[in-house]
Design a protein around this nucleic acid. Structure first.
Lengths: 339, 339
DNA sequence: ACCCTACTGGCAAACGTTTGTCACCGCGTC
DNA sequence: GACGCGGTGACAAACGTTTGCCAGTAGGGT
């Protein structure tokens, strides 16, 4: 009582398996009347070709995986959307996997998915550089916003201009003591972002307090907010907007005015950043473009880029061109003000 | 220069293919020394077993697909998270696909995915009942929040208690004229929700204006807000929170006070619903549980439910028990007030 | 009457894996 | 010394599909 196979369809139509296969995929190759009979049989049986068998014959799966640390983070949703669009245009199936910020879960997912796709997009991987390099030797992959330092691992990242602008913006408002709330210790992006903050502060002669690592979640913002108040800083930059939301929540419930008492700057400009009150000043990241760019790189690497994308003709452009470091910029809203 | 196969590994280790296979998957069956040699060879070659070939031999893919209309909608993120958790606990790979609210894209995705998974979860499908029934005959699927009316199609839905409570809440605050902003015309959930509003209004003797269909996006809320003001209603219920956010945006920019001038109630209680100012009164939906329940149903249907889930032992429970209609309730925040 | 061509449909191999079955080896036992 | 036995490894079949190749047929031109 398993799913019907091509053999069942062929039997019901009274033809050979090969004829059935051609009737379904080689228009013109089989007489119209025969082909119609085969299609009818397939329809009645509810036949669905087994992708596994097909994939076994061709050597390609026609699918790529996108692995993200946390699907409930709006930032990654936007990234997903970007890669989805591009991949669909090239008739490549995308499978998305959420690893819930767990490195073990991430590696487990890689193992489970590696054999069923032609390549993988690893967004903000929490894996260390060595593990990433190892996997890169096993399966074509593109690291998004995580540079393993291994030139063999193709990488698409974002620049730190936005972070520098953020610090400059605060300094320009007269802030002389900032605080930075770090993200996960295993996040490459956090290390990079923190370095940019440190250097810019040094350059501008602004004092900086490092608040330590906090999970990239909204509820982690409470601890960060308390740390800010203890530090005496007049402004805080957080690793991402989710944390910034939490900081805003906590400051409000402690009666601290934003931006009058403390200025807050997030990172990513995710969905909701303009909903808070005050609306969040944050670093805008072209998440959708990031996803699309990474997907394009991967397609180029695995040779899946169709010459003529089926959907939008010019918009997506050649699959593997363009810079692999995207620019970011500060978007000023209401959560920052002069001291 | 293709990916290495088991044959390559076996050759390098100087054993037969079958020996290599057993060395990797049947601990004890092969002498430890030989097995170690095979594992070393596999490692050096970066061998990754082809899921396709494996799947061909067993008849199961060990994977299910989750198809959602819009991944950037926080509601579906929560749903994804719920099914991810349950599926991971049963060692089933989940692939998520976003169809961007397009019925054609949805059917195309079904076709592309049907052959590579054991079953599918269709969340808030925009497909009509007949098409859904047809696909249900082709591949095991569970419809989430979409009842095709076909008893052959397993379905998990949410109740309308929350919507009724919302109307009662408004009536209790003295509102005598409500408006309802519908979602997509092809949404079963919208039809159901609207009916609940209509009936409850009739029961309570409250006047209701139907504002017509609006896309379930934030930007569509502007048109809905304008329609509300034209209608003269003192309160509006929207199909979902995204629309409610847009309504809030628009009313604010037109200088209309919420909740003093107009009360607003959304639906879903998505991420961000408590961030708006005023915070949104909305119908809370157990999205995560909805995803988990649907996944459990599917596993039960395709016989993939492992007797002993690998991760959380009791929490997930037996795969196919529990009601298939989940309760919702109103969560009152700041966007509703007496007339 | 013959051959060439165009068209249709079938045979069988191949893709990479898992696993039932079997052969072989060395050992101890009678 | 023959036999049985446990342990180890190889052979080959099977999963469902695609496709190169070939055979058969019909029709038309010479």
């Amino acid at each position: 009582m398993s799913r019907p196979t091509l053999a069942d369809v062929a039997a019901r139509a009274g033809v050979a398996i090969s004829t059935a296969s051609r009737a379904l995929h080689r228009p013109g190759r089989i007489r119209a009347e025969t082909a119609a009979r085969v299609r009818a049989a397939a329809d009645e049986l509810g036949y669905v070709p087994s992708a596994a068998a097909r994939q076994l014959h061709r050597s390609s799966a026609g699918a790529v995986a996108l692995v993200v640390p946390d699907l409930t983070n709006p930032f990654f949703m936007a990234l997903v959307r970007g890669s989805t669009r591009l991949l669909r245009a090239h008739d490549v199936v995308q499978v998305v996997a959420d690893v819930e910020e767990e490195p073990e879960s991430e590696e487990q997912t890689l193992a489970a998915l590696a054999g069923r796709v032609d390549g993988m997009l690893l967004a903000a991987s929490r894996l260390d550089a060595a593990t990433l390099s190892t996997w890169s030797r096993r399966v074509p992959l593109v690291a998004v916003n995580h540079d393993a330092g291994d030139p063999e691992v193709p990488t698409v990242t974002i620049g730190t201009q936005g972070v520098e602008e953020a610090v400059e913006h605060l300094a320009g408002l007269g802030h002389r003591h900032l605080a930075y709330a770090s993200g996960p210790a295993t996040s490459w992006a956090d290390a990079r972002r923190r370095t940019a903050v440190v250097e810019t502060c040094a350059r501008l002669g602004v004092r900086l307090t490092d608040l330590g690592h906090h999970p990239p979640r909204r509820d982690a913002g409470a601890a960060a907010a308390d740390a800010v108040l203890r530090s005496g800083a007049t402004a805080v930059l957080t690793f991402n907007d989710l944390q910034a939301f939490g900081v805003l929540d906590r400051l409000a419930s402690r009666g601290v005015q934003v931006p009058e008492d403390v200025s807050v700057i997030g990172h990513d400009d995710i969905f909701g950043a303009d909903l808070t009150s005050p609306a969040l000043t944050t670093v805008t990241v072209p998440a959708e473009e990031l996803g699309a760019r990474a997907a394009a790189r991967l397609l180029g690497a695995v040779g899946l880029a169709t010459a003529a994308p089926s959907a939008p003709p010019a918009a997506t452009g050649p699959a593997s061109t363009g810079p692999d470091r995207l620019a970011t910029h500060l978007t000023v809203r209401g959560s920052t003000a002069p001291v």
